[in-house]
Design a protein around this nucleic acid. Structure first.
Length: 512
RNA sequence: GGUCCGUUCGUCUAGGGGUUAGGACGCAUCCCUUUCACGGAUGAAACACGGGUUCGAUUCCCGUACGGACUACCA
């Protein structure tokens, strides 16, 4: 009988969650759902100096937006809470002490100045890697070098101290990563990492292992940046005697900058011309806002689909996956090993695909709202008509109104390039004739009728209608390209259409 | 510097001892069309390098190069 799958996403609320983190959350979620397990969210806020107000809410909002819902979290606690490490503070010390008792950890009283001096001394002695380890700890102030009496005294008098792990001098540490296979490291290259800080808070390493154990975590799926410390984690499981329930590790390839230079970091922001955050983030300190995918117009399902494919693939040609399909198809075996460069063009393509699959009526709501925000009230019917005509031509919902509002609002300027090339006497003749026809028309003016009448006007002037079509378009819309013109005519109606044509006739002059 | 991880078209990737090395995005050309898109068709475009192993290596092994992560009382 294997245990129920339990995975966690454990972000640190030190700023906005970036997309690498979101992807990690997504993979954890998919893995849990695929295996009928639980997905937990744990806030790792052990570093009080880096706490950023609002970051926790941001994490929640981001995951909510994408529908990556945790089965257990600070907002929806299960039975192994609390789900914030700051609220678990009291528990960690006993585990650290347990390690001290077992001889796997020790007190260290060195000040930061003394540590600095040690590193300087070692560097001067050309030691390549100055670190607190099995060799150097013999020269430092800790419970391994000080007398038992002095240690007791220092502890009693409230001397600041940390608890460090005692890394064995010669041991081959191995772990079987689900993505990378066997990884082996010799303990001599590891250092005696701090487990408990002098402020009484645990470091990541201690808190992480203790909480994962207490919360029954079976699989640790996290970014590759943790791979170097994974051997330490394995050692800690062993020291605690928790080997039999040690989770399996899966270290995800990193998300890289598009130029291939380093991992995608929070600081990159819209400096690179696209968001690296799911949602807008306002930096309270600087007042600057970093762009989010949501506000740029990305649909959550499209973004999720895109994100899933950054480092994972289903092994077949299918590219469009709903969340449910992703759950069904997901497996850790199909996650790649190498870093993934972020390609915004693909993200846009995904958005277009999802946008086109949405019903016109739903998209029309965006258009009504966007129009209203610029002071124009339009009916849902009109908005839906606009969507029907332009859906295949936009990437983001905002483009409906931004690029095609001429369907509602008559243009007052005309594209000069098109005008100079296409505006000619033939066009003037046909349009003048057509305007007159429109004045006298009564009946149903649909696209078909609009086209027939225009054809007749052209014929009357003995001009091929195809020759003047772009000029006609220019006159009515102000631009040289766009959706089916006759459909636009039908929406405008004869009166508005005639009015626009006459305005163009008055305004435009034939290029010499 | 040290430890660890990685390397298939520009990008995301499939594949895996014998393949015309497949797909997607992007790009180009053509078709459709009243324009621009959409759609359809076609095309250019890749196994980092050097040694092994093998009848045969892009695939396995070892080096080299390159890229990346880590190297805090941060996570």
């Amino acid at each position: 009988m294997s245990r129920e799958v339990r995975v966690r996403f454990a972000p640190s609320p030190t700023g906005p969650l970036h997309i690498g983190g979101v992807r990690t959350a997504l993979y954890n979620y998919l893995f849990a759902k695929k295996n009928g397990g639980k997905f937990l969210l744990r806030i790792e806020d052990t570093d009080q100096t880096r706490f950023v107000p609002g970051a926790e809410d941001y994490i929640k909002d981001s995951l909510d937006w994408l529908g990556i819902t945790a089965d257990e979290s600070p907002w929806n606690p299960g039975e192994v809470g609390p789900y914030r490490q700051s609220e678990r503070k009291a528990d960690y010390m006993q585990y650290a002490l347990d390690l001290v008792e077992k001889g796997h950890a020790y007190y260290a009283f060195d000040t930061s100045e003394e540590l600095e001096a040690m590193r300087k001394r070692l560097t001067a002695a050309r030691v390549v890697q100055p670190q607190y380890n099995s060799i150097t700890r013999t020269q430092m102030k800790n419970s391994l070098t000080l007398s038992e009496e002095e240690v007791k005294e220092r502890l009693a008098s409230g001397d600041p101290y940390v608890i460090r792990v005692k890394i064995p001098r010669k041991e081959e540490v191995r772990l079987n990563d689900m993505i990378r296979g066997w990884v082996m490291v010799h303990s001599s290259t590891l250092d005696d990492k701090v487990l408990m800080k002098s402020d009484g808070m645990p470091t990541y390493h201690l808190a992480n292992i203790v909480d994962d154990h207490l919360m029954g975590i079976t699989h640790v799926i996290r970014g590759e940046e943790w791979l170097p410390s994974a051997p330490l984690h394995v050692l800690l499981y062993k020291f605690f005697g928790w080997e039999s329930t040690m989770p399996q590790f899966a270290h995800l390839p990193l998300l890289l900058k598009p130029d291939g230079n380093g991992k995608l970091s929070k600081r990159d922001g819209d400096k690179l011309g696209f968001p690296v955050f799911p949602l807008n983030w306002e930096n309270k300190a600087t007042g600057e806002t970093a762009a989010g995918f949501r506000e740029q117009g990305y649909l959550p399902d499209a973004f999720l689909n895109f994100l899933a494919f950054l480092g994972w693939n289903p092994g077949n040609d299918q590219e469009i996956f709903s969340k449910e399909e992703l759950v069904e198809a997901f497996s850790i075996e199909r996650i790649g090993k190498s870093g993934t460069k972020f390609d915004i063009a693909k993200a846009k393509w995904y958005n277009e695909q999802y946008l086109r699959s949405k019903p016109d009526s739903e998209l029309a709501e965006f258009v009504v709202a966007d129009a209203k925000s610029t002071g124009t009230e339009i009916s849902p019917e009109l908005a839906e008509n606009m969507v029907r005509l332009t859906k295949e031509r936009v990437t983001f919902p905002a483009e409906f109104w931004k690029d095609y509002q001429y369907i509602v609002i008559a243009p007052d300027t005309f594209d000069e390039q098109v005008a100079s090339k296409k505006w000619n006497e033939d066009a003037v003749k046909v349009l003048t004739h057509y305007a007159g026809v429109l004045d006298n028309f009564s009946g149903t003016f649909d696209a078909e009728t609009a086209k027939n009448l225009l054809g007749e006007s052209a014929e009357a002037e003995e001009i091929k209608s195809g020759k003047v079509m772009q000029a006609v378009r220019l006159a009515v819309t102000g631009v040289g390209g766009g959706p089916d013109l006759m459909e636009i005519f039908a929406i405008l109606g004869t009166a508005e259409l005639a009015k626009r044509i006459r305005f163009a006739l008055d305004t435009l002059s034939i290029a010499g």
